[in-house]
Amino acid sequence: MKAERWQRIEQLYHATLERAANQRAAFLAEAGAGDDGLCREVEELLRANEQAGGFLATPALEQEAKDLAAESLAAPVAIEIGQELSHYKILSRLGSGGMGEVFLARDSILERCVALKLLPVQFTQSTERLQRFAREAKAASALNHPNIITIYEIGEVVTAEGKTHFIATEFIEGQTLRMQTIESDKRLRQALSFKLPRRWTQLTKQGSSIATSNRKM
């Protein structure tokens, strides 16, 4: 692009931007008359300016640090199979979620299998995260329904990375609903899509009535 043309675009851009929003289109059409290409380019920039929102509002150092933080949250907890955490022996990794990773473990005192959810060590330095973790456990333990998992215990354990918090719950063998829907045939999926909402409404009704009574207290 020639320097003069860029200067012309710049001039027209700022002149248009100085007008009230509802007068811009008319102003631009008049000021850029005869040069549709110019008007279009200015229009595009004005639109970009409106849409840009918080674009570049965060300095690069901050943004890169945030991305780094987000990534380290996604990194798996350094737990080895066979490792013992308190009275739990880790048997296998079951999966991971936003608030930590879940392992299959054996409770050596009560001699039963549990699902052990570990909060990432970094989170333990955040009181907000810890409160959320405890809230999650409390909320789930307040519910008693065959379709909701039972909470056995919450507590602290020491891992190689430091002290962290855990929730031990009942372990239910089987596939997740998503896996089942993906793997099973169409008929089963149809059946599920019909039956599921009814079971869900029962569940959520019970869940919300408990939540409401908790709030009232």
Binding site: L61, A65, A69, S72, Q122, Q125, S126
Partner: peptide
């Protein structure tokens, strides 16, 4: 620069709210 990046990232992970 990387040390500062990690220091900042750590503070985001620990941030209260």
């Amino acid at each position: 620069v990387e040390a500062e990046l990690h220091r900042l990232a750590g503070s985001y992970l620990r941030r209260e709210r």
